[in-house]
Amino acid sequence: MRRIPYVVLAIYALVGGLGPLFIDYNPVRASLEDRLRGPGSQVSTGIAWLGTDGLGRDVLAQVVYGARTSVVIGLATVVVSCVIGVAIGTVAGYFRGWLDTVLARGIDILLAFPAILLTIVIAGAFERSVLVVVTALSATAWISFARVTRGIALSTRERAWVQAARVLGVPRISILVRHILPFTAGPVVALATLEFALVVLAEAGLSFLGIGLPNSAVSWGQTIANGKQYLATAWWISALPGIALSLLIVNIGILGDQLTARYGQRGRRS
């Protein structure tokens, strides 16, 4: 039972990574005679197992390419916000002082906005691109990493071996990297899993609202939004990518809970 999330995530990684090699899809190619065909129907390019959308584009291909988009954006955002958050958190927790105060107030200010709202405003202000989406998502995602690692640094700095290193005259940077940073690894991995789920959801939400990725990119959020106007006649356009998205998030959530139970520390924002 505990292995299920790993298996499901491996399938997503495989489909997202290798699927685009096998399935050809061009988001701007429309085929009018294949419009709104149900799952399993015969279309000009073969069998559309998950049906086609309002422009005759294959929904299965959109699900596969969307998996790649979600995983790439999720990973990029988690890596960026993890590096920034861990760096700021450990430095603030270890050195304390004005740096720590500035960090605490800065986080207070960012938390005054609902995370998705800040993301919408940042993403909407700039030209639609992958870089802008990753930046907008990272703008709030780093906070949890900073909070968790700050707490760990605060408690670890008082431990005997850190004090011993300080007395021996080990440079502060080395103390931080060799004696503090390793202790953040477990909780950071657990947190990264949960953040990945939140980021993938937020990206889909942005694209659903039409302020996320450019139209040339394939995103589950966009496909779901496109299908909304055909709900009465072609339910599969919105329903199926949503199932793919939900299944992914559920499994990451379970994995994240397992990891959190093992490593403790929760810094998840509401």
Binding site: A197, L201, A204, G205, F208, G221, I224, A225, G227, K228, L231, A232, W235, S238, A239, G242, L245, S246, I249, V250, G253, I254, D257
Partner: peptide, 22 residues
């Protein structure tokens, strides 16, 4: 509860429209 927390709200909304409105 795990499922409800994980499902994207915009998609759940659309599915509810599909079921109860359409």
């Amino acid at each position: 509860t795990i499922a409800l927390q994980s499902f994207p709200t915009f998609w759940v909304g659309i599915m509810l429209i599909l079921a109860f409105a359409l």
